[in-house]
Design a binder for these strands. Structure first.
Lengths: 243, 243
DNA sequence: CGTCGCATTGAGCTTGGTCAACCCCGGTGG
DNA sequence: CCACCGGGGTTGACCAAGCTCAATGCGACG
């Protein structure tokens, strides 16, 4: 199998790909695997041999808390086209696991291929590096949101970000998308109790900003939601630049 | 001027440097600049031409909040040897500024030199990439701490991390270090009010875990502090590996 | 000696957590 | 067809963590 076109679009949106780079990318061999909701896609360990890219559905980085076995924190959500654990290539594996949110399909890429790319394709290497740095910018924005927004504004920020990222790769449009997260999992992301998440959802609903039933979300008032969340998508670095 | 030996030690702690890589690193030209407490070392803008490395003192990444001009959030602290805004090389500049915490000295490296390294030194490029990924792992750990620890445990985690990082490069020892942060700045890091930070400091003092006067901190009970903070330094990835 | 900036402390309010119901809905088995 | 069950969503009551405002302490510095 070949690398997902979503990822190629992710790169092309941010820099021009030379023919040579594009050809190398399309020749990357991948293994396609499907997962059911909750499955562990990549376990937390220090000896990974391959990394994965989202093809369909969502996944999350899940950190197990030491000494509190049933508690965890989610530090990232991934949409189609994301090179989820590319950092596991350069670091010695992962300090967290990657789990499927709803049914998910991924493509695994062998680290040997990535090593070869870094030896012979410097521009493409910088673009892979960039992908991990955009992840890091998202981490920083989550830190900013956690420190400066409370409950419903914080939830609103998450919804704005996920919709923007899904929309950027063409996996959502018309202010509607599917987010098969339990409120308990939202609580693991936002750092609240599940009950408090429920009240935040209700608040956004009562303000007429969203409609949310099951996994289906519709944003009724994008401007209001983005204003409440103080959402500014520039951290996603979606401008085309020479890198 | 030349690159700081702290950074070379940072890399050598994590992988063997080939002679060729080491020679190239030592030939990097830098500009040495000193800053006073509070100075902006790197402004938030989208057209940076150089990146900086900490030589002495501390710096912080500061995010200005949109529409609340006097409020900010700090998403990272940097110790000597950190390549603070290396990500500004691959991304199009920074979405945050870098400010001096106490008096600070840095060395600026021109992006043209980094481009040349990425074209001709693939192994060294992977190590630079690794440095930015360790930053990202620290961001994730801050997210975990923010979501799972409260006040004094959260503060304890920050102290454990900063001491571990200072100690790793030889800039602190004997469980003592200097942290010239105002309580207001600590509040910007932890996401609390300055008054609440004050109570967290008092709590750690009252438990006999730390002594803290002015900028000088002494950890009296490392084991107690690390247990309270559930601190596990493995996310700092200080193991030697082939990368 | 006065002032300024920061640390410290207290009082009262707001946000978020915990516990315990109850509801809704889909699946299962009689 | 219906009774039952279980998981997650929803709600209320009460408790705990954290914020705001205000006052005091205190050392550096003019």
């Amino acid at each position: 199998m070949a690398i997902t076109e979503y990822f190629i679009r992710f790169l092309q949106r941010r820099d021009a790909l030379q023919d040579r780079d594009l050809e190398r990318l399309r020749n990357v061999r991948t293994q396609h695997v499907s997962f059911a909701s909750g499955d562990v896609i990549v376990p937390a360990d220090r000896s990974a041999r391959r990394s994965c890219m989202m093809l369909r559905g969502l996944s999350a980085r899940s950190h197990q808390l030491v000494g509190r076995s049933e508690e965890r924190v989610i530090t990232a959500l991934h949409v189609p086209g994301d090179f989820v654990d590319l950092h596991g290539f350069v670091l010695a594996g992962l300090e967290h696991s990657v789990v499927a949110i709803g049914n998910a399909e991924v493509e695994f890429i062998d680290h040997a291929e990535l090593t070869e790319i870094t030896e012979n394709f410097p521009h493409l290497t910088r673009l892979l590096w960039m992908a991990t740095l955009i992840d890091a910018a998202v981490h920083r924005q989550w830190l900013v949101a956690a420190a400066s927004l409370r409950s419903s504004a914080h939830l609103a920020h998450l919804l704005c970000e996920i919709y923007t990222r899904l929309n950027a790769v063409g996996a959502a449009g018309n202010h509607q998308f599917s987010l098969p997260l339990l409120q308990r999992e939202l609580a693991d992301i936002l750092g609240y109790s599940p009950i408090h998440v429920n009240r935040a959802v209700r608040d956004l609903r009562d303000r007429g900003m969203i409609r949310w039933s099951g996994a289906d979300i519709q944003i009724l008032d994008w401007h209001g939601l983005a204003t409440l969340a103080r959402f500014d998508p520039s951290y996603l670095d979606m401008e085309r630049q020479s890198r």
